Computed example of a mutant assay.
Amino acid sequence: MVVGNIGGAHHWLDHLYGAIMHRTRFAPQFFSGGWGADKLELLEQMSRELIAEGFAQVALQHWPPPAIDPIWRTLWETRRARLQEGIFATPCEEMLKQVLPLESQTARVRLLSPRNVPSHEASCVVHLAGTGDHGFDRRMRLGAPLLKKNIATMVLESPYYGKRRPPLQRGARLLCVTDLLLLGRTTIEEARSLLYWLETVEGYKKLGICGLSMGGVHAAMVGSLHRTPVAILPFLTPHCAAVAFCEGILRYGTAWEVLMRDELLDSSMTREQVFERFRTVLSLTDVTQFPPPEHPKPVIFVAATDDGYVPDYSVLKLQAAWPGSEVRWVRGGHVSSFILHNKTFQKAIQDGLDRLP
């Protein structure tokens, strides 16, 4: 049940942050380069084929995921912990590599693990990035306290972010709508390969996949497609990216006027037509189209009661599509919950791993 609407101040904070970030010239808008129509047809065609074949069937046909061979270097180590950074070539299919920026084709990860505990006696959670989460530090701060529970943290830097960002992109503001689809598709393939590597090469017996906001959408997709039991931990997550951009505060930071007059589509559109087209394209990110996990008990959503980016109904729609999963509510908005409720997120991670068969 949703906690009563007593967190108006938190909702107000989301809108204040949104006003500063999205309604001013403080940062460029999302998709100021338009739809990216030269790539859109290819991505839609590939996604339609996936939907037609069925995600569950595709996952079976493409199991195991492509093998990766990360090259590691140790950043630091103590008697109790070790932090390593690794790089590997993105394992996504060749057709996607042809349209993926060169900078995004080399994946970067960091792995924080306990030193005195063999991997088969420890757990590991892969953390995926939310919108604007460049680098590793934010997610490392979330996972680091779990070391005392023998839970290792692996953080994947998203394509289009950090050192994987193409030179013309400013900050997290993706230039084209197709960049969002490419970011998601590449992240999912890399995370699937990382989970399989942790299981088969490193020997971890319990694994989790975690993410906040956009990262939670990707985490849910990855967990759905994984063929062995895995804890799935989406935090502050909508059921579909279209919700955040069309209904949440991100709609104020989207270059709707550019999308209306994008000449690559050979015609201009009204705002209503752009909204409808945008929803149709981003319906490819709808997690409810993915198969529910065979083991739903280790699936724990954490949602905020006054989230200005993710409406309540979207979280409940995702839970309804995955019967047996759990939703935990925290009092706050999207921004304040990220700041104030790390202990709740950490408890969900621990509980999800404990529920694995």
Rank of each mutant, 00 (worst) to 15 (best):
5 N>W: 11
6 I>S: 07
8 G>D: 01
11 H>E: 11
11 H>T: 02
11 H>D: 04
13 L>N: 02
13 L>A: 02
15 H>A: 07
15 H>R: 14
17 Y>F: 12
17 Y>T: 08
20 I>C: 04
21 M>L: 11
26 F>R: 14
28 P>Y: 08
37 A>M: 12
43 L>F: 09
45 Q>K: 11
49 E>H: 13
52 A>G: 01
52 A>P: 02
53 E>T: 13
55 F>C: 12
57 Q>F: 12
65 P>V: 07
67 A>M: 08
67 A>T: 10
67 A>Y: 00
68 I>N: 10
68 I>P: 03
69 D>V: 08
73 R>N: 07
83 L>T: 02
89 A>G: 00
90 T>L: 04
93 E>R: 14
94 E>S: 13
99 V>K: 11
101 P>Y: 05
102 L>Q: 14
102 L>M: 12
106 T>G: 03
109 V>N: 02
110 R>M: 12
112 L>M: 09
113 S>E: 13
115 R>T: 15
119 S>G: 01
120 H>N: 10
120 H>F: 09
121 E>P: 00
121 E>C: 10
121 E>L: 14
124 C>W: 01
124 C>I: 06
127 H>N: 00
130 G>F: 12
138 R>E: 13
141 R>E: 15
141 R>D: 14
145 P>N: 05
149 K>D: 15
151 I>T: 01
151 I>R: 00
153 T>N: 08
154 M>G: 02
157 E>M: 09
159 P>D: 03
160 Y>I: 04
164 R>I: 01
165 R>T: 08
177 V>N: 09
188 I>G: 06
188 I>R: 13
192 R>C: 05
201 V>R: 15
201 V>T: 13
202 E>K: 15
202 E>Y: 04
203 G>T: 06
207 L>P: 04
207 L>C: 06
208 G>S: 01
209 I>V: 15
211 G>T: 06
213 S>T: 01
217 V>I: 15
219 A>S: 14
226 H>P: 00
229 P>A: 13
235 F>H: 12
237 T>P: 00
238 P>T: 08
239 H>G: 12
240 C>D: 11
243 V>A: 06
244 A>G: 09
252 Y>T: 03
260 M>Q: 15
261 R>A: 14
261 R>K: 15
262 D>F: 09
266 D>E: 11
267 S>V: 06
280 T>R: 15
280 T>D: 13
284 L>S: 12
287 V>I: 15
293 P>H: 08
295 H>F: 07
296 P>N: 10
301 F>N: 05
304 A>Y: 06
310 V>S: 07
310 V>H: 00
312 D>E: 14
320 A>N: 13
320 A>I: 01
321 A>I: 05
322 W>R: 11
326 E>A: 10
326 E>R: 10
328 R>M: 00
330 V>W: 03
333 G>K: 02
335 V>N: 00
338 F>R: 09
338 F>S: 04
345 F>S: 05
347 K>W: 01
349 I>C: 06
349 I>F: 03
353 L>I: 15
355 R>G: 02
355 R>E: 00
356 L>E: 01
357 P>N: 02
